[in-house]
């Protein structure tokens, strides 16, 4: 479904700020996989997301989605296969537009935009039905501006907008990190529910180890621009946060006081 081959990406090449963000990273996701990614700051998690979605193009390597090579395809042409939720709840929606208008924009993801009405009666019914699955009462506020919603509501809406057209791949970039614990739990549960019912191939970056263990069927550990450890379904089931931290330390072979603080 998703296939990354020898991805190499350097930022600010040739300047004192040069940073190797991804170093020969390889990754394969099968249809229906739900993979969580953990790693310390600067490990290359976000760059990996940006390479897959086409925000950045890799210096070297290949990106293949659904048997199509998309390495040089710009973001807006790749976006029809990829649903994305960002860390910032404000990033995934247009605040001065209404809920139904935002949903209509998401609805048009996989088709050519025309000069027909964006919100029709039929679509409104469909939106209402989709919003009901969030259990937030948003289905009664179709004409409310999204800027008036709380961060949690906006993130739930972003999640719905990213998924209801059933993209080939769903990218979640620390999408619960900016929310308070209660809201984060709500979004985590919604994520679990939506990914399961739609059987979406999903890649989720998180700083929260417990979340990384609770969700998904595979777990990846990243460090210094590479994927240093992969846990399959069997191994992941027996993992705990402590085991994960120990292993992280073992692989890196150094004391990780700061990273431990960051990762837990």
């Amino acid at each position: 479904m998703l296939h990354l081959e020898h991805i190499h990406k350097v930022f600010n090449e040739g300047t004192p700020d040069e940073k190797i963000a991804l170093n020969q990273a390889n990754l394969t996701l099968h249809k229906g996989d739900f993979v969580t990614i953990i790693g310390s700051n600067g490990a290359g998690k976000s760059t990996l997301m940006n390479i897959i979605s086409g925000v950045h193009s890799p210096d070297m390597g290949k990106v293949v989605i659904d048997n199509r090579e998309v390495t040089v395809l710009p973001e807006y042409r790749r976006a029809r296969y990829i649903g994305r939720v960002f860390q910032d709840p404000m990033a995934g929606t247009a605040p001065s537009m209404t809920i139904e208008e935002n949903l209509s924009i998401a609805y048009c993801r996989s088709k050519r935009r025309t000069f027909k009405k964006g919100v029709t009666k039929r679509r409104r019914d469909f939106f209402q039905e989709a919003l009901q699955t969030l259990h937030l009462g948003l289905e009664n506020r179709l004409n409310a501006k999204v800027g008036l919603l709380s961060g949690g509501e906006r993130q739930a809406l972003s999640l719905l907008m990213a998924t209801f057209t059933e993209p080939a791949i769903l990218l979640l970039d620390e999408h619960t990190a900016a929310l308070d614990p209660a809201r984060a739990a709500l979004i985590t549960n919604l994520t679990k529910e939506i990914v399961a019912t739609k059987e979406l191939t999903t890649l989720m970056v998180t700083h929260n180890m417990q979340q990384a263990l609770d969700l998904g069927n595979k777990l990846l550990m990243m460090d210094k621009g590479g994927i240093i450890r992969e846990y399959d379904e069997q191994e992941k089931r027996n993992l705990t946060v402590d085991k994960l931290l120990d292993e992280f330390q073992k692989i890196k072979g150094e004391q990780l006081v700061n990273d431990r603080a960051l990762l837990s």
């Binding site: 979605s53 973001e75 807006y76 042409r77 976006a79 029809r80 990829i82 994305r84 960002f86 404000m90 990033a91 995934g92 929606t93 247009a94 605040p95 001065s96 537009m97 208008e101 935002n102 209509s104 924009i105 998401a106 048009c108 993801r109 996989s110 935009r113 025309t114 000069f115 027909k116 009405k117 964006g118 907008m161």
Partner: peptide
């Protein structure tokens, strides 16, 4: 219209509208 909604989103949140193709 569908195009018009995209124009408005472009002024409102360009990052978001790009992620919607």
């Amino acid at each position: 219209t569908e195009v018009g909604l995209a124009v408005r989103a472009t002024g409102n949140n360009p990052k978001m509208i790009r992620s919607f193709a």
